[in-house]
């Protein structure tokens, strides 16, 4: 297994070839071979005369076929693998061995569970970044919210999608819409189970501050925040999340300490105060990671 972080080496592109120089496969053998390779995580291209596939790039290709003559494939610079006498399981074993030989990434081993942002809906309010306890979110060079650590996301936890006021966060493998990517309807935005007020989780008036970005709201945020009340409210809210919204125990048990929350609140307050001092020049700016002390 190659783990679940970003790929540090390319994968092999497997090509199931039945053109000149290779005998065709029986329909069932072709299908079962495809299934075996896909179930093991491989990418398979099946070329055919007259229709297109994705263009060749500089990734390594492994061309499988029942070859009479593989010279055309080899002369084109591709590695060939004769599968004439192999059943689908044998083909898979051979492919895995070649993946290992060439040092390509061995796929598999992780249920890919992570947030996907719909930037047609996202307003860059940073609520997801503020809410997530696991550093999944960050901001890019243009101060745009970004998913930066997909592998830190807690499997089967859709919590951040509930706090997004725009229903812009998807988990494509979630069971229900619109979190799974289904069309967002007006009633989804109204639905209480879709929308958890982050101000109730963290205390203070962050929600309104983020919405209005007015100095008045910032002032209220910086002066009314009460850390111990925030923690109690957060705990109460998280109990509700667990019950109603599919938030797993693992996430609830990884709550930051009172000290963590107080520290985060203190940094946010300091930043807010500094920002107020710069309010003239900051007027039209969107909130950034720096602004919210994350």
């Amino acid at each position: 297994m190659s783990g679940k972080g970003r790929l540090d080496k390319d994968r092999l592109r497997v090509v199931l070839y039945e053109g000149p120089g290779a005998a065709p496969l029986a329909d069932e053998a072709r299908f079962e071979t495809l299934v075996a390779l896909l179930e093991d995580g491989h990418q398979v291209t099946r070329p055919a005369a007259g229709t297109a596939v994705a263009a060749a790039d500089d990734s390594q290709h492994l061309v499988l076929g029942r070859f009479d003559d593989a010279s055309a494939v080899n002369d084109a610079g591709f590695q060939s693998f004769d599968i004439s006498d192999l059943d689908p399981a044998g083909v898979l074993e051979g492919v895995k061995a070649r993946v290992s030989d060439v040092g390509a990434d061995q796929p598999g081993g992780w249920k890919p569970w992570f947030p996907v942002i719909d930037y047609d809906r996202c307003t860059n309010c940073m609520q997801c970044l503020t809410f997530c306890l696991f550093d999944v979110y960050g901001v890019d060079g243009q101060q745009q919210i970004d998913v930066q650590h997909e592998d830190k996301c807690k499997t089967d936890c859709p919590a951040c999608s509930r706090v997004c006021p725009e229903a812009a966060i998807m988990f494509p493998k979630y069971k229900k819409g619109p979190i799974n990517g289904d069309v967002v309807r007006e009633e989804d935005l109204q639905n209480e189970s879709m929308k958890v007020d982050i101000s109730a989780l963290l205390g203070g008036d962050i929600y309104s501050a983020l919405r209005t970005r007015q100095s008045e709201a910032r002032q209220r945020f910086s002066t009314e925040r009460d850390e111990s009340k925030a923690l109690l409210e957060r705990k109460r809210c998280l109990a509700k999340l667990k019950k109603n919204l599919d938030i797993p125990d693992e996430v609830l048990m990884t709550l930051p300490s009172v000290g963590d929350i107080q520290d985060r609140a203190r940094r946010a307050r300091e930043k807010a105060e500094r920002r107020q001092d710069r309010s003239q020049t900051m007027k039209d700016r969107r909130p950034t990671e720096d602004d919210w002390g994350i």
Binding site: K4, G5, R6, L7, D10, R11, R13, D27, R30, F31, L34, L38, E39, D40, G41, H42, Q43, V44, T45, R46, P47, A48, T51, A52, V53, A54, A55, D57, S59, P107, G108, W110, P112, F114, V116, E150, D151, P172, K173
Partner: peptide
């Protein structure tokens, strides 16, 4: 698809490829 005689690319899981920033997505 397999029986149709048309060409195609098949992938195991687009989500996994996206999470891992698989460069094959650029090709696709």
């Amino acid at each position: 698809l397999s029986a149709s005689g048309v060409a195609f690319d098949a992938v195991a899981d687009l989500c996994e490829m996206s999470a891992r920033k698989d460069p094959a997505l650029k090709r696709l």
